[in-house]
Simulated scan of single mutants.
Amino acid sequence: MKGKISLDLTEGSWTASGGLTFTKASDGRTLRFTGAHGDLAQRSMLVDATVGDEATLPVDLSTYELDMTKITVTMPSVNSPGSVEGRPFSTTLKPDGAAVFSRAFGTSPVPTGSSLATLAGRVDVVPGLG
Rank of each mutant, 00 (worst) to 15 (best):
G3M: 10
L7P: 07
T10W: 01
G12K: 06
G12M: 06
S13Y: 09
T15R: 14
A16T: 07
S17Q: 12
G18W: 00
G19T: 00
L20E: 05
T23G: 04
R29S: 15
A36G: 09
D39K: 04
L40G: 12
A41D: 14
A41H: 14
Q42G: 15
R43P: 13
S44A: 15
V51Q: 08
V51L: 06
G52V: 04
D60T: 02
T63H: 03
E65W: 02
T69N: 14
T69I: 00
K70H: 03
M75P: 00
M75I: 04
P76E: 06
P76F: 00
S77M: 00
V84D: 08
V84T: 06
E85V: 10
E85D: 09
P88N: 09
F89M: 11
F89T: 08
S90L: 05
S90V: 05
L93S: 07
K94D: 06
P95Y: 01
D96E: 15
A98S: 14
F101L: 08
S102Q: 15
A104L: 13
P109T: 01
P111Y: 04
P111F: 03
P111A: 14
G113I: 00
S115V: 15
S115W: 06
A117Q: 13
A120V: 00
R122M: 07
R122Q: 08
V125Y: 01
P127D: 04
L129W: 03
G130M: 01
